[in-house]
């Protein structure tokens, strides 16, 4: 009974592949989830027939329930590759999984035609097929999710490196324009690159500009003070600039003590005082 029931879906896939594929394509094209223009019809047709071929090959091994088994490896690989491409094209998870789920309707229609007089077997067949397709659909979601996470992780790392430039403003004057939220790992990177630059340029003044820092809480303030303390230990004075009115209010409300640090409202003011400390001044050209 079980063997026979397995063979019905496999038989449909073998014998009626063309009609099944046509029905499926029609269903895909009619669904809202199919984006005209993003995927070419020929490409979609290729993907459909490839998927059906892999499905048939895998089913011939007789395993209808466990898609993690080795005989399903090719099918999983195909779905993973397709999902990856679609994720890059900007498809939503729903739009991506519809590819698999939309096969149900044509497949069940065929089953119904094959087994018109045996409701019990029909129910069993439908149940098997639906479990299988659900698993494959969920697999695409899983791959989709994993892709997204990889992208997010990579972007986080890019941000970490991109957003911490140390700029040389003048001989022995460095500027550190901070952009974005400061957390522990970012501060660590910022601190290390700043101290390394101080060592290389033998700078005497560093201006830390926090115009681009959206909020300052106690943790951020503590990170800032740590950076200032470390720079001071290396013999460099720090000036904190770019403090917006709201941030000044927050700092005072939080009770953060910045009295040890020179603070200026704008980067220009900080640069002026840094020049003065070096015994320099800017004059108009005649």
């Amino acid at each position: 009974m079980v063997l026979k029931s397995k063979s019905v879906v496999a038989k449909i896939l073998e014998q009626d592949e063309t009609t099944l594929q046509t029905d499926w394509l029609k269903a895909l094209e009619n669904s809202d989830m199919y984006r005209k223009g993003v995927i070419r019809p020929a490409e979609l047709r290729d993907q459909c027939s490839e998927f059906l071929r892999l499905l048939r090959n895998a089913m011939q091994q007789g395993n209808l329930t466990e898609i993690q088994a080795p005989e399903w490896a090719n099918t999983r690989q195909f779905l993973a590759d397709m999902t990856r491409v679609r994720a890059q094209q900007g498809f939503s998870p729903q739009e991506t999984t519809t590819f698999v789920f939309s096969l149900k309707k044509p497949l069940f229609d065929r089953l119904w035609q094959e087994l018109p007089k045996d409701p019990q077997q029909l129910a069993e067949e439908v149940w098997n097929a639906t479990t299988l397709l659900d698993q494959l659909g969920l697999w695409t979601i899983e791959v989709f999710q994993k892709n997204r996470e990889e992208i997010i992780l990579r972007q986080q790392q890019d941000l970490l490196e991109l957003s911490t430039p140390v700029v040389k403003l003048w001989d022995s004057i460095l500027a550190l324009p901070m952009i974005g939220t400061l957390d522990s790992s970012r501060t660590q990177v910022v601190m290390e690159s700043l101290l390394q630059q101080i060592l290389e340029t033998e700078s005497q003044v560093v201006i830390i500009d926090i115009t681009g820092v959206p909020t300052v809480d106690t943790l951020v303030a503590q990170h800032l003070l740590k950076t200032v303390a470390a720079a001071r230990l290396m013999g460099t004075d720090c000036i904190i600039s770019g403090i917006r009115p709201q941030i000044a209010q927050t700092i005072v409300h939080l009770g953060v003590d910045l009295s040890e640090v020179t603070t200026k409202a704008s980067l220009a003011d900080a640069f002026a005082i840094a020049l003065k400390r070096q015994g320099l001044k800017i004059v108009a050209a005649s």
């Binding site: 060592l199 033998e202 001071r232 460099t236």
Partner: peptide
């Protein structure tokens, strides 16, 4: 004078900011 970055970070993390001690980047300064 001449404290290395790693040393500076370590001291700050240990809570030893050496307040009151004057520092310079090199012997000349």
């Amino acid at each position: 004078v001449g404290m290395q970055p790693a040393v500076a970070i370590t001291l700050v993390e240990l809570g030893l900011s050496l307040t009151g001690v004057r520092t310079a980047i090199n012997v000349e300064q």
